[in-house]
Design a protein around this nucleic acid. Structure first.
Lengths: 115, 115
DNA sequence: GTACGATACCTAAATGAACAAGGTATCGGT
DNA sequence: ACCGATACCTTGTTCATTTAGGTATCGTAC
């Protein structure tokens, strides 16, 4: 069920954030997000890799082949300046939206804008 | 751009929440969400009405025709027991996810689960 | 030595929510 | 008489995500 995940549309943001500390390869990005969220956010590979390609096309990421610590070939992604800028925008936007959703979740009837 | 809304997948939750204080008609639900979120969450009618039908089909809502305060015909939706249960589940789930996302947004590299 | 799980990459088809853009009709106010 | 707000609806399109595959390398256990 697409979109049934409450964090739909947040994937790009999570990926961008995974790269602020430096380059990381796709598999590592997925693992980092999973661990950092205490296993709650688990990114499907079928969503992850297309997202990386999409974001690279948009100019937010660049990629370079390299070697992992364990000497394996991997494609390392890193943030472009545009990507860093977009990360800041989207982070702020997410905070706004989360606040708005929380307002609704705790909202009562007749909370009109008192004129 | 579908899904670019960071609150995609949250629509059902917002709608369920709009009904905890009693029945409301579709148009009123949209208005309530918009106002309660300080105009930040604006639900398109093309998303709202299909969502209401979908949710009714799932047994979370029931509907009855009635009259508004201004004497206009409108279809009033209200929560079923199942809907109220689902609201509680989804609210909790959303809090969890929001916490998880915030973890990632403030996460650093090497935040391994210390063994 | 070979089986297996983890690592590492990828794609194609199906799903389905949300968007865009229409449509109908009633009502109050100017 | 018209317009904006209210109130309902649908149809076509878009596109992120899911599902379900595929390839290949590496370390470890049997």
């Amino acid at each position: 069920m697409p979109g049934s995940n409450l964090f739909s549309g947040t994937l790009d943001l999570l990926i961008l954030r995974s790269l602020v500390w430096g380059p990381l390869h796709g598999y590592g990005i997925g693992r980092w997000i999973r661990r950092t969220s205490s296993e709650i956010l688990s990114i499907e590979e079928g969503a992850l890799y297309p997202a990386l390609h999409r974001m690279q096309k948009k100019g937010w990421l660049k990629s370079d082949w390299g070697l992992t610590e364990t000497r394996r070939q991997a494609k390392f992604y890193s943030l472009t300046d545009l990507g860093r800028e977009h990360l800041n925008q989207e982070t702020q936007r997410w905070e706004e939206h989360a606040t708005a959703v929380r307002s609704v979740l705790s909202g009562s009837r007749e909370a009109e804008t008192t004129p």
